[in-house]
């Protein structure tokens, strides 16, 4: 069936991401949801440090570049001062799950009424593909040359499950490895923003993304790895549903 699909106005003309980078898909999904909700004009984006911060230039709405890991702190203040606006952070896994884990934990604990979009591709991308807390066991990175060894580096951190103990308004994990998962992820993002609009509390959607460059795979192989390997460790679904 023929459909209409046009680039959201919140997304600028050219992104700076590598070929096959999942950020491009996820940025667009966020923009689509905000435009469909009619909230493009009042949305305020707080970006992280890392590849995620390349969203700043692309994003045609108001935005700020926070310090590494601290986007949830900056977003806390903005949302409290501007409760009528949509406020959201966009953070990668190096930023959110490593240096910024205290900020995301406490924003969740306080049940701040903003939304976080958490892009998890299992590596520090911009700095050259080092191990992140989310890197899978056995995965080779520029700081785990023989594969991540849990004897020395522990197990990959499951952020959504960790935050679930704090009972925020909404938590889900999606992926972009298939049309079905992309569409489901978009629904999760919509749920997260609706939770914010209804002042239910903190909402977060983790999204598993491919990083072909730092995984040293072709884009098609990287997307396949998300579905076959990454999702096996990070299960998809809504972990805390609205109203639970």
């Amino acid at each position: 069936m023929a459909v209409t699909r046009v680039k959201p106005k919140l997304i600028g003309e050219n992104n700076q991401y590598c070929s096959g980078c999942g950020h491009g898909i996820l940025n667009r999904l966020v923009a689509e949801v905000l435009e469909e909700l009619g909230r493009a004009d009042d949305a305020i984006l707080v970006t992280a440090v890392g590849c995620a911060c390349m969203m700043n230039e692309l994003w045609q709405g108001d935005n700020m570049q926070a310090a590494h890991g601290r986007a949830p702190a900056s977003a806390t203040a903005i949302k409290r001062l501007r409760p009528e606006n949509i406020v959201f952070t966009y953070q990668g896994d190096g930023d959110l799950s490593s240096i910024g884990i205290a900020e995301i934990l406490h924003a969740t604990a306080r049940n701040e009424k903003f939304t976080t979009i958490f892009a998890n591709n299992g590596v520090f991308g911009m700095t050259g593909g080092q191990m992140a807390p989310t890197t899978l066991v056995g995965q080779k990175t520029t700081t785990t040359h023989f594969g991540r060894d849990p004897q020395f580096t522990g197990m990959p951190v499951k952020i959504v499950e960790l935050l679930a103990t704090l009972k925020p308004a909404y938590l889900a994990r999606g992926s972009v490895d298939s049309i079905k998962n992309i569409n489901t992820t978009k629904k999760y993002i919509r749920n997260a923003f609706e939770a914010q609009i209804d002042s239910e509390g903190f909402s977060l959607v983790e999204v598993l993304l491919p990083c072909p460059t730092n995984w040293h795979l072709t884009p098609e192989q990287a997307l396949e790895r998300v579905g076959s390997t990454v999702e096996a460790y990070y299960p998809l679904g809504e972990v805390v549903k609205r109203g639970e």
Partner: peptide, 17 residues
């Protein structure tokens, strides 16, 4: 014009209108 290419494209290469 099913739009699947638009959905998966990271770079907004496709437009269906």
């Amino acid at each position: 014009q099913c739009g699947l290419c638009y959905t998966v494209c990271p770079d907004c290469v496709f437009e269906i209108a």
